[in-house]
Computed example of a mutant assay.
Amino acid sequence: MNFRTYADMASVVSANLNRIHEQKFDLIVGLPRSGMIPAYMIALRLNLPCTDLLSFVNNTPLKSGYTRNVSKAIKLPQEANRILVVDDSIASGQSLKKDLALVPEALRSRIQTCAIYSDIKRRSDVSFFFETVPFPRVFEWNIFHHEVITNSCFDIDGVLCLDPDNEANDDGEKYLSFINSALPLNIPSRKVHAVVTSRLEKYRGETEKWLEKVGVQYDHLIMLDLPNMQVRQEQNNHAEHKGLFYKNSATELFIESDYRQSIEIAKIANKPVYCVDTNEMIQPGVTYQMRVGSVNVIKTTIKRIVPNKLLVPLRKLINK
């Protein structure tokens, strides 16, 4: 499973700025939604005006920050003589073709097109692209809405919602309160194949209600059938529980929060695991260091020991 992050995109854009700069564009146009991200990256680096496709088609006046004077002094998008239309990726090319059909024919000769990522090495339906990323592939900005999640497994705590802190994790009334009021994190926009969690079977009713409340659709809910938290801690088989289900299912991706468990799940199932805490795709057959004392493990530790009421304001910092 090929995977790229926002940081990867920023790096590849930076490495290819010379290719854009030498074309002397007057305007950058992003294709909503994902194309706006690289479009603004490019425009800001080259100090060029930027707009979205419909604003370009409608010739909506351009805007920029009060402290920034863009290098191309045009007020209307259609005043631009050389225009770069940007998308995050290209595969069949049909989406780009459909978008360009909205542009008045008189303006099309001024346009070049750019995709940051292509699935193949050579193509004629885009002026240029920066990197080949073949299928299967997902990106940080679409992984929770990509069609692959319909054939995926999701953990709950740390993925769909915040982890319980130590105080809430009492296997009693406080834990029930946590389940009922857990703050959602990454809610997939499609039905997932299975929610696979180390929560105990006795909390199935409360967990099902919470999943329905926050809009998580799923075919299966797999829980640990153990009597209590003490037995679960003694067995300490969270990764094995998840990994074996993943291995024996036809699913192609597991989404987990804990870095160590992600590595173990990928090893057991011999299939990729997306680790939310470290924002990386753990690949089977690859040796990973456990990163004791690393920034990524520190992030995970903070999430587990800081009370949720204090963690919420820190989420942006922790996930940065």
Rank of each mutant, 00 (worst) to 15 (best):
P188N: 05
M1R: 05
S257K: 07
V286Q: 04
K320W: 13
I42C: 02
N16G: 09
L221V: 07
F245H: 11
N47Q: 08
A91E: 09
S64A: 13
G205M: 10
N151D: 14
V86I: 14
T301F: 13
E201A: 11
L311G: 07
V138M: 14
G293H: 03
A43V: 02
K316H: 09
S92V: 03
P313V: 07
L211F: 08
A250C: 05
I74A: 03
A80C: 07
R199G: 11
R232P: 05
A266P: 01
D8S: 06
K247D: 10
L310C: 13
K121H: 11
N166D: 13
I298D: 12
H145V: 01
L244P: 00
L17T: 03
G65S: 15
C114G: 05
N236K: 13
K63L: 11
R4Y: 08
Y66A: 15
N248T: 07
E147S: 15
D163M: 08
G93Y: 02
S95A: 15
I187A: 06
A266I: 04
L48P: 00
N18L: 05
A182W: 04
I143M: 06
A182I: 03
S257G: 13
Y246N: 00
R232N: 12
V196C: 08
T300G: 15
S118A: 13
E22W: 01
E173W: 04
E173C: 00
K271R: 12
K72N: 08
C161L: 00
F245K: 01
L314I: 04
R123P: 05
K174H: 14
L46R: 01
L46M: 02
I90E: 03
F254R: 01
R291E: 15
E22T: 06
Y40G: 00
V216P: 05
A39L: 09
R260F: 13
V159S: 08
E167W: 11
G215R: 05
E208R: 01
F254Y: 07
Y288P: 06
I42T: 03
I143P: 01
S109L: 05
C275L: 10
D225Q: 06
D277G: 15
T60E: 14
I116D: 08
V231Q: 11
S294M: 09
N169C: 02
Y40C: 10
I28G: 05
I28T: 07
L176N: 13
M290V: 13
C114Q: 09
R19T: 12
A73E: 14
S34L: 04
D163T: 07
I187R: 05
C275W: 06
H146S: 12
N2M: 04
P307R: 04
